[in-house]
Design a protein around this nucleic acid. Structure first.
Lengths: 111, 111
DNA sequence: TAAAAATACTCCATAGGTATTTTAT
DNA sequence: ATAAAATACCTATGGAGTATTTTTA
């Protein structure tokens, strides 16, 4: 189980089709098919109910879908948090007091 | 960024050492070193402060550590939930009423 | 100087692509 | 009959291992 498989799985559910998901993900249909199969093999349960013109999550698939969305969201959040923090670090740090006359620095500017 | 890298990173933090983490994870020290480097390269920030006899998380590393623990926990939870559900599905489903005399089935055993 | 980490390199396993077949309505 | 998924096969990239060098208290 890895993050790409989860992202692919979520896309398949939201698109209702492996082929459509493959296009959105810039992958080929067999690549998506193999990722889903790998997930199903690893977990030992069917994740999709295959229809002719659409795929739907199985009951276990629905369970995984809910978790996967949370996991992927946290992953994005982590990346954003780290980058945001680094941006702040890169900015100047000025410690002082403010008044009608502006900022009165009491510590040197830290680059 | 993938789940194995996050698990490795967490182990490095909790062990305070890449070498120790490698042993616990049944990996070699260079493999761990490369995983951490790959994470740092991808995120563009240092994750560890390297000392001689220990490594500590950088500030960004501490941020990631907190997220990683949540992500890995959810991942485990997802696996457990899916397996638990499948176990329940595999068991008998009996619908009925209970009394001092036991279970009174009102639907056939589904099996 | 002694430990832990980083680097160099080699090899293999896996993941993705193309081409094709199978499936289900 | 047709559209989508599955399979087969091939290739290339990445990840792990061994051996070695570098780093810093």
């Amino acid at each position: 189980m890895n993050l790409q498989q989860l992202a692919t799985f979520c896309r398949v559910i939201s698109e209702g089709s492996m082929t459509a998901a493959a296009e959105k993900l810039n992958l080929t249909q067999p690549a998506v098919s193999q990722q889903i199969r790998a997930l199903e093999d690893e977990l030992g349960v069917p994740l999709l109910v295959r229809g002719v013109r659409q795929v739907k999550p199985s009951i276990q698939g629905q369970l995984l879908y809910d978790y996967a969305k949370k996991i992927l969201f946290l992953t994005q959040q982590a990346e954003v948090a780290i980058h945001t923090f680094s941006q702040e670090l890169a900015g100047e740090i000025r410690i002082g007091t403010t008044s009608a006359f502006g900022l009165h620095l009491v510590s040197p500017v830290v680059g």
